[in-house]
Amino acid sequence: MAKIEKRTIDEVRKIVYEFFSEECEVPIDKLDDDTNVIKDLEGDSLMFLELLEIFKKKYGLNVELKTVGKYVVKHPAETIGAIIRMTMLIIEHENRITELE
C-alpha cells in the first residue's frame, strides 16, 4: 500500500483538472470539485479510461481496469472531486480497492 504524500495529492488534482479542461475545452477556472463530468462537461467513460491509463503509467500502478469497474459500480464517481478521491484510493490500494467498503 503506497503512502500518499501531499505532493501526490496536489499532483493528481492538477492532472485531473488539466485533463478535463483540455479534453472538454473548458477553461480550468470554470471547473471545480462539484463539476459533473457527464452532465456539465458531456464527458464519457473513455475519458475516465484515459485518465486511469495516465495514472497507471505515472505511478506504475498494479490495477486492472475491471477491478476499478467493479468498484465504480458500487461507488459511482461523476464529479471532478469524486474522481480525484477515487484516484487517490486507486493509488493507495491498487487492486485491493474492491476490498474497501
Binding site: 475516465f48 486492472e64 459500480v73
Partner: peptide
C-alpha cells in the same frame, strides 16, 4: 459485462 467490471 457490468458484473465482470466493465467501466461502461
Amino acid at each position: 459485462a457490468r458484473e465482470q467490471g466493465a467501466l461502461n
